[in-house]
Design a protein around this nucleic acid. Structure first.
Length: 548
RNA sequence: GCUUCUGUAGCUUAAUUGGAUAAAGCACCAGAUUGCGGAUCUGAAGAGUAUAGGUUCGAAUCCUAUCAGAAGCACCA
């Protein structure tokens, strides 16, 4: 990345000149007036070391060091611009690939609960997590992903009770999640007047934990039924997981961790349950229930243990809802106290906001006001289909790519932490800052280049519009790096590229341009824009189309 | 009650984590078309970032208080 190489050069220079080790942050300039990259290092050093540093002298040194760029000093900000001939040269070349980085990264996302339907509430984690996974991989990290499904816990005791009491297996098999959901709801109604059912359910969970054959067989069926449906959804969304270690994978290890914590006196028994004290003024974390069974917190501790100590991950990213934020942070804390991980491993929590209904109401399975993902996809497809029909396109793959892209884009374009109010016309908006706009730009490039020969040796950036586009294209890799935990930055970037290209497209001739050098330059810009969009959209999990 | 988070044009959101004149889309208004795909392009208007203080060369971003909203508070995940 350009950014990093510039910052390293300046850091070295400062070290050599003053013996000071200082991080030099290079940012991509927001305003074209401020060049391509800029840094406020002079101001920072000045306020930190006052008399030791001569700003003018240091600036001259930096300017000399960065002679391959145009460097200027404006109110003590250093603005760095890429020279025109560098831009022209780079336009001839392919987009550079990132080198392999010897760091292991795991991204956990999606993580639905077995036997519950996949609502649009799960969409955020699934789509953002997937984009983060794709970006890390592209950046060269040794990256993997894990769908931490909720396939263990008392709810299975409840479900098994419900199936045994009221279930009809052939009926369940036809429409598993729907039927299981009904049974689950029925159980919750029943438990009020029949306390016996809860006791029974807990017994089943205990039996499951102890490996009882009959109960385990039920559990397995429930998991398989659900996974079949989830997998359909994932393939529709073009999302795949390298690992699906659910909670069931960890419950035994969880118990061992708790046993060890007790021996080490890092956990204690209170009211029959095992707890770990974390921060002062904070309620302790329960890691084993008083009936001896494990629960989510201990499964999560075992999960960290496995990822850090078995898989040797350097960075673990959790893409999870805000409602779990405080809990997860406490659990991280507990993991540290128990010696499961140290600062050597980075645990990153990406906590996304809610999807709410208009009026601010939260969706909940119990209230029955959830919007199913399948419904959303269906609506999006119908809208796409009717718009494409006007253009005589009925190709299913094109419909899918546009419809699914629009859904993903709507989630990815905002910062993950903000809540989303679900309104049909907004989430299915096809105008303005949308994936459709970017896909359309791609189609324009593609159809323009059809059957055209591009020469590589003659490129001259004649006007400001062409230069602006070339400059932005040049920074693609910098932007990818910036967006690794915030895909919305990449979204913004791709929209900007599209805008810059569309301006050129409407303002100038490309194919009809008589001057062969100018024509060729614009064709190269077109090609580069096209590839940039294709790679960029792919990192968001969105596909391009050939016509629309 | 305690803890955490949020508050930015009429609406939906950005702002590279403390940097330069707060940036877009929608809606509204005015324009571009015998075009390489108009799902396009140009322009205008619109906020000084909930409020009041403070720290700093420099604040939407940090600190304090107030107001408004949301979430989490032990054997669910």
């Amino acid at each position: 990345m350009e950014k990093d190489s510039i910052s390293k050069k300046i850091e070295l220079l400062i070290l050599k000149e003053y013996g000071i080790k200082e991080d030099v942050e290079i940012s991509i300039s927001k305003d074209t007036k401020h060049g391509d990259y800029s840094t406020s290092i002079l101001l920072k050093l000045d306020s930190k070391y006052k008399d030791k540093i001569d700003k003018i002298y240091l600036f001259e040194k930096i300017k000399y060091e960065l002679s391959e760029y145009e460097v200027e000093n404006l109110n003590s900000f250093i603005n760095i611009s890429i020279k025109k001939d560098t831009l022209e040269n780079i336009l001839k070349k392919d987009i550079p690939k990132f080198k392999k980085i010897n760091k292991k990264v795991l991204v956990e996302y999606s993580s639905p609960n077995i036997a519950k339907s996949f609502s649009i509430g799960h969409l955020t984690t699934t789509i953002i997590g997937d984009s983060i996974y794709r970006i890390y991989k592209y950046l060269g990290y040794d990256t993997t992903n894990d769908n931490h499904i909720g396939d263990w816990g008392v709810q299975f005791g409840k479900l098994i009770y419900a199936i045994k009491e009221w279930g009809n297996e052939t009926q369940i098999e036809k429409n598993p999640i729907n039927e299981l959901n009904k049974l689950y709801v029925k159980f919750h109604k029943e438990e009020e007047n029949n306390p016996e059912s809860v006791i029974k359910a807990k017994e089943y969970y205990k039996k499951l934990s102890d490996g009882d054959k009959e109960i385990t067989a039920y559990w397995k069926k429930i998991v398989d039924w659900s996974m079949q449906e989830f997998n359909k959804t994932y393939s529709l969304l073009d999302i795949s997981f390298e690992n699906t270690y659910g909670e069931s994978f960890y419950y035994k290890k969880a118990q061992e961790i708790v046993d060890k914590a007790l021996i080490d006196k890092k956990a204690k028994i209170e009211d029959g349950a095992v707890v770990v004290y974390t921060k002062e003024n904070q309620k302790p974390l329960i890691v084993r229930k008083s009936d001896g069974t494990s629960l989510y917190s201990s499964h999560d501790l075992a999960t960290i243990d496995y990822r850090v100590n078995m898989l040797k991950m350097d960075t673990i990213i959790y893409e999870i809802g805000v409602e779990q934020k405080q809990y997860i942070e406490q659990m991280f804390e507990a993991a540290k106290i128990l010696g499961i991980y140290s600062d050597k491993t980075k645990l990153i929590l990406i906590s996304h906001g809610f999807i709410k209904l208009p009026g601010g109401e939260k969706m909940s399975t119990r209230k029955g006001n959830t919007i199913k993902l399948n419904t959303l996809i269906k609506e999006s497809k119908e809208k796409t289909m009717s718009l494409l029909k006007e253009r005589n396109i009925t190709n299913n793959e094109i419909i899918d790519r546009i419809a699914i892209g629009a859904i993903k884009f709507n989630i990815l374009k905002r910062h993950y932490s903000s809540d989303i109010i679900f309104e049909w016309d907004k989430i299915l908006n096809f105008e303005g800052d949308t994936s459709i706009y970017i896909q359309y730009t791609f189609v324009r490039c593609l159809s323009l280049l059809k059957g055209v020969d591009i020469e590589n040796d003659t490129i001259k950036l004649e006007n400001q519009d062409e230069q602006n586009l070339a400059r932005e294209l040049y920074k693609f890799n910098d932007y990818i790096d910036l967006s690794k935990l915030s895909p919305n930055i990449l979204v913004e970037y791709l929209l900007n590229i599209s805008k810059l290209y569309n301006l050129i497209y409407s303002k100038y001739n490309i194919l009809k341009e008589p001057n062969s050098i100018i024509r060729n330059t614009r064709l190269n810009l077109t090609k580069k824009t096209m590839y940039t969009i294709e790679i960029g959209l792919d990192l968001l999990g969105i596909k391009t189309v050939k016509r629309m």
